[in-house]
Simulated scan of single mutants.
Amino acid sequence: MLRDLSDKHFPNAAKIVLVQDNLSTHTPASLYAAFPATEARRLAERFEWHYTPKHGSWLDMAESELAVLATQCLDRRIPDKATLIREVAAWQQNRNKHHVEADWQFTNPYTRSSNDSGH
Score class of each variant (00 low, 15 high):
Ser30Val: 02
Ala82Glu: 11
Pro79Val: 13
Asn96Val: 09
Asn96Glu: 14
Ala70Ser: 11
Cys73Tyr: 03
Ala70Arg: 12
Ile16Ser: 02
Ala67Lys: 09
His99Lys: 15
Leu31Asp: 01
Lys97Glu: 13
Glu65Cys: 15
Ser113Ala: 13
Asp103Pro: 05
Ala14Arg: 15
Gln105Tyr: 09
Gln20Gly: 13
Asp75Gly: 05
Ala13Ile: 00
Ala62Asn: 12
Ile16Pro: 02
Val68Ala: 09
Val19Tyr: 12
Asp75Ser: 07
Glu45Lys: 06
Glu87Asp: 13
Ala90Met: 01
Ala62His: 08
His55Ala: 04
Pro53Ser: 01
Pro109Phe: 03
Ala70Glu: 12
Lys97Ile: 07
Phe35Met: 00
Thr71Trp: 04
Ala37Val: 10
Ala34Met: 08
Asn12His: 12
Pro53Arg: 01
Pro11Gln: 01
Ala29Asp: 12
Ala82Ser: 06
Ser114Arg: 15
His99Ile: 10
Leu69Arg: 00
Pro79Trp: 08
Arg46Val: 00
His98Leu: 05
Val19Gly: 05
Asp21His: 04
Thr25Ala: 09
Asn22Leu: 01
Lys54Gly: 05
Lys54Trp: 06
Pro28Trp: 01
Ile16His: 01
Tyr110Trp: 14
Phe106Trp: 14
Phe47Arg: 03
Thr25Val: 07
Lys15Val: 03
Arg95Glu: 04
Gln72Thr: 08
Asn22Tyr: 02
Thr52Pro: 02
Thr71Asp: 08
Thr111Ile: 09
Leu59Ile: 08
